[in-house]
């Protein structure tokens, strides 16, 4: 049974990855080829030639068309075939599906599902990633695990203490109680952990220059199925935002993940770290890029192991949930509901 949530926007790539080379991505099991036209528009087409299924991503981009690398069927940006070899008549059905695409906040989003619903569904926002007031480092790590394991992982940051000690984890993360809120109509899960007086982990000490203990807030906003935002705020102990909402004496880091299922057992783990301090300091950028990538790979390693264990187990194993899982449980429930809504065979079940 598929857990995929269709009729949604998913991050397929960073805008910087899509250019005049053909890029292959598999999203929710659908092979897609991405490229950019001469005028800069990003295009996403099904990555299988209608003739004999050769991957278009292994083919050639000629001007704005793809010429199949096997027998030369040629496709325009809308997926319609504009030329076939040896004959003038182009079969009426010679076309590959094209996907709605939106470029926003440094991401290339593609719509998976009923294209008619794309225009009325807003693309989730992560505005910091394209905001000149922030400096951003980012990457993407392929994960050999189902997307739900990454959702579980990100919704419960108490694991930082155990899996990411020496980087972002300190004892206080796991010790501090969380507050969780869910808005079903808006489709958002919020998990807040505010540490008033805590050790400063290297990730923040090195990047901000803060020495000594800090106030550290972690406020998670998950917009299922794809976009995860962690609003991270660090400041010297006791420094709080002003009553008017301004917060000049704190350091803000917006950590963004896009969780894009590739197949049932693999996921694209897009990660970005945007900061509102030391924006021009290349050393800070290098440090945060390397540290965050290390942290992401620690998760990737753990989740790859977990996927193998789960895949080999009979279905229906009994988990045990405790307080730290409150947010993750809420996220799972919304995802399950969305999967049912996008799958006509499951409605009402």
């Amino acid at each position: 049974m598929s857990e995929f949530v269709r009729d949604q926007w998913y991050v397929a790539a960073y805008g910087s990855e899509v250019g005049r080379e053909l890029l292959a991505r598999t999203i929710l099991g659908e092979p897609i080829v991405l490229y950019r036209t001469g005028d800069g528009t990003a295009v996403a087409l099904a990555d299988r030639c209608v003739h004999r299924r050769f991957p278009l991503s292994e083919s050639k981009l000629v001007d704005d068309t793809i010429v199949c690398g096997y027998h030369g069927f040629t496709y325009g940006t809308d997926g319609a075939c504009v030329a076939v070899p040896g004959q003038k008549r182009i079969p009426r059905t010679a076309r590959v599906p094209s996907y709605p695409v939106v470029e926003q906040d440094s991401f290339v989003w593609v719509w998976i599902g009923d294209a008619g619903k794309a225009a009325t569904t807003p693309v989730p926002r992560a505005p910091w990633l394209a905001d000149p007031g922030y400096a951003t480092v980012c990457g993407m790590e392929p994960l050999n695990a189902r997307a739900s394991l990454l959702v579980d992982n990100l919704m419960d940051l108490s694991h930082e203490t155990y899996l990411h000690g020496g980087y972002i984890g300190t004892p206080e993360v796991a010790e501090t109680p969380i507050t969780t809120e869910v808005d079903d109509e808006a489709g958002v899960v919020y998990v807040s952990r505010h540490m008033d007086d805590t050790e400063c982990p290297p990730f923040y000490a090195e990047s901000t220059g803060l020495a000594g203990r800090i106030t550290r807030w972690q406020d998670i906003e998950f917009h299922p199925p794809c976009l995860y935002l962690l609003h991270s705020r660090v400041a010297p102990v006791g420094v709080l935002p002003n009553a008017d909402g301004t917060d000049p004496d704190a350091f803000h880091v917006e950590v963004v993940y896009a969780i894009t299922p590739s197949t049932e057992n693999s996921t694209y783990d897009f990660w970005a770290v945007a900061r509102d301090f030391a924006q021009d300091d290349a050393e800070v950028s290098d440090y945060l890029r390397e540290s965050n990538r290390t942290v992401v790979l620690q998760d990737v390693d753990a989740l790859n192991v977990l996927e193998k264990v789960i895949a080999d187990e009979p279905a229906g194993y009994q988990e045990l949930s405790i307080n730290i899982d409150t947010g993750g449980l809420a996220a799972r429930r919304i995802l399950a509901r969305m999967a049912r809504a996008g799958d006509p065979t499951k409605v009402g079940s």
Binding site: T179, E181, E185, Y190, H194, T215, L240, N323
Partner: peptide, 17 residues
């Protein structure tokens, strides 16, 4: 610094540890 209400919707369910 403890958060009070975070989401602004009309039908928000909340769990405080």
């Amino acid at each position: 610094g403890a958060p009070t209400r975070m989401l602004r919707g009309e039908h928000v369910r909340r769990v405080v540890w």
